[in-house]
């Protein structure tokens, strides 16, 4: 019945087994659905409904509540610019405008070639490294408008398969909220958070 790959189905079964009631698995399964197709389709929501035994309408009610479940086709790279208070104070709006201008994609939209989506977001917990930007939820702190333009050009030319937070911080970042100290070897492969709950299996990587 399932349209998902065998690996994804196995992951779904494992996720569901972690919860006392299987409806609790809705949120992680919605991320699996996004990873399958790049964004959340009606078919994806129907699939999730089947897995946890609720109706597609109930799944949609959940999905529509949370901003990270993208129900429209999203670019290969989702650029999220924080314009909440701490980032705004240090030029977050200018960073957003630089990203929009350089990419030609206004916030809330996706470019015609499907490469970039741009959005402005509320606080992403990087206030000590304001202004902050995320690419596929991987963080860059201390971004300037010029560096933001560089980032947009780099995504267009390098088109990395895996988006790595340390690499981007080195290339385009500045002040950080705190010393990151330890390199993170994994990263994001699409416009959804690079995290898989793996039960008892310890792993740093998802990419």
């Amino acid at each position: 019945m399932s349209h998902w790959s065998e690996a994804t189905q196995e992951r779904a079964r494992e996720i569901i087994s972690r919860y006392p009631q299987k409806r609790s698995a809705v949120m992680p399964l919605l991320y699996l659905a996004m990873a399958e197709e790049g964004y959340l389709t009606n078919e994806g929501m129907k699939e999730v409904a089947d897995w946890v035994g609720i109706t597609p309408a109930q799944v949609q009610a959940v999905a529509s509540f949370y901003t990270m479940y993208k129900r429209k086709r999203t670019g290969k790279y989702l650029i999220s610019c924080c314009t909440s208070i701490s980032c705004m104070l240090l030029g977050g709006d200018d960073v957003l405008h630089a990203v929009e201008d350089e990419s030609g994609v206004p916030h809330g939209e996706t470019g015609a070639d499907g490469l970039l989506s741009v959005e402005h977001v509320e606080c992403i917990g990087a206030c000590g490294g304001a202004p902050a930007v995320q690419v596929n939820y991987e963080l860059i702190e201390g971004v300037t408008p010029d560096k933001a333009r560089d980032l947009v050009r780099w995504l267009g030319s390098a088109q990395p398969e895996v988006v790595n937070t340390d690499e981007m911080q080195e290339l385009f970042g500045g002040v950080r909220s705190f010393d990151w100290a330890i390199r993170d070897e994994s990263g994001a492969v699409g416009p959804y958070p690079a995290f898989q709950p793996l039960g008892t299996v310890g792993s740093e990587g998802n990419a």
Binding site: G125, P193, F195, E204, G205
Partner: peptide, 26 residues
């Protein structure tokens, strides 16, 4: 963990895995 914290979530998941492996969890 909030969705915009994938890196902290990966770190925590890795730590949970280590703790299970040593019998501190489970």
């Amino acid at each position: 963990i909030r969705g915009e914290y994938p890196k902290p979530a990966r770190r925590v998941q890795a730590a949970v895995g280590e703790a299970y492996a040593r019998g501190h969890l489970g």
